[in-house]
Write a protein that binds this DNA or RNA. Structure first.
Length: 258
DNA sequence: ATGGCTTCATAGTGAAGA
């Protein structure tokens, strides 16, 4: 089972990249964040034409998440059931016996912002809900734009980022809370290149200078860890014209996809 | 350097992202 996550920063703009990437990589599951489109604009027909189904929830201008998958999504959940939220940031579905949870965690803006408190509250609700999900679905994958760089090695210049969202200690504590549920960061199950990132600032030639952060993650539950065979960051889409500022992360798990 | 890009909603610029 090949699973990927990609914050596309507008599916309206990025659909050609997504279709090209699906054709080239043939994942079983591709989770998208920041669709920035209403549901009626979701390109379901185009995806079905190339052999994919989808579960999705969007809104105008901001947020929006989708699970694009080769098999029909089962037991779909839209949004955190235990958290009142206007913002569309979560979609979950069962695929071939694996629970797939796609999230777009709030950015937080700055440590003194109301949005930061919203981010932490959202993460607390996520952890609580995952406890019940893990009981129902021991084989579980949590993936998406978590908007947290879990360690200093996930930051191009840790000193420059001190005091910023994405790297603050309370956020990192929430990442560890996810790990304490039994979820493992699949990227760190394997030897990885130094300075591996999944997002680079559009400004100041961030990508060319590798000024990035690793904030997009694929976390897998314990029963899947022994079957996980790889996790890579695919930088190719970030090099395209009109690229998203994020690039896909891809994990392969040797479980039956039939 | 509180900017730098990019997108969206606008029809001037401003918000938001990370």
């Amino acid at each position: 089972m090949k699973l990927a996550t990609w914050n596309v920063n507008s599916l309206n703009v990025r659909l050609p990249h997504v279709l090209d990437w699906l054709a080239a990589n043939q994942p079983d599951v591709l989770c998208l964040q920041e669709l920035k489109q209403e549901d009626k604009k979701f390109p379901l027909a185009e995806l079905q034409q190339v052999g994919y189904q989808a579960a999705f929830v969007g809104q105008k201008t901001y947020n929006g998440v989708a699970i694009i998958c080769k098999s029909m999504p089962q037991d779909v959940v839209l949004n955190l059931p235990n958290f009142e939220d206007e913002q569309k940031r979560l979609v979950a579905a069962t695929l071939n016996g694996v629970r797939v949870i796609c999230v777009y965690v709030p950015n937080g803006q700055s440590l003194d912002s109301d949005k930061y408190q919203y981010k932490l509250a959202w993460l607390v609700a996520l952890v609580e809900w995952l406890k019940t999900e893990l009981v129902r679905y021991p084989k579980l994958v949590l993936l998406g734009d978590l908007n947290i760089a879990p360690e200093d090695r996930d930051v191009h210049d840790p000193a420059a980022w001190v005091g910023n969202v994405l790297v603050s200690e309370p956020e990192r504590a929430m990442f560890r809370a996810l790990e304490q549920l039994g979820l493992r960061d699949s990227f760190r199950l394997f030897e990885q290149p130094e300075k591996s990132f999944s997002w680079w600032d559009y400004r100041m030639m961030g990508f060319r200078r590798n000024h990035g952060l690793r904030i997009d993650h694929i976390l897998i539950s314990k029963p899947l860890v022994a079957h996980c065979t790889s996790c890579i960051i695919d930088k190719a889409p970030r090099k395209l014209e009109r690229a998203s500022d994020h690039t896909p992360v891809v994990t392969e798990i040797g479980v039956d996809t039939k």
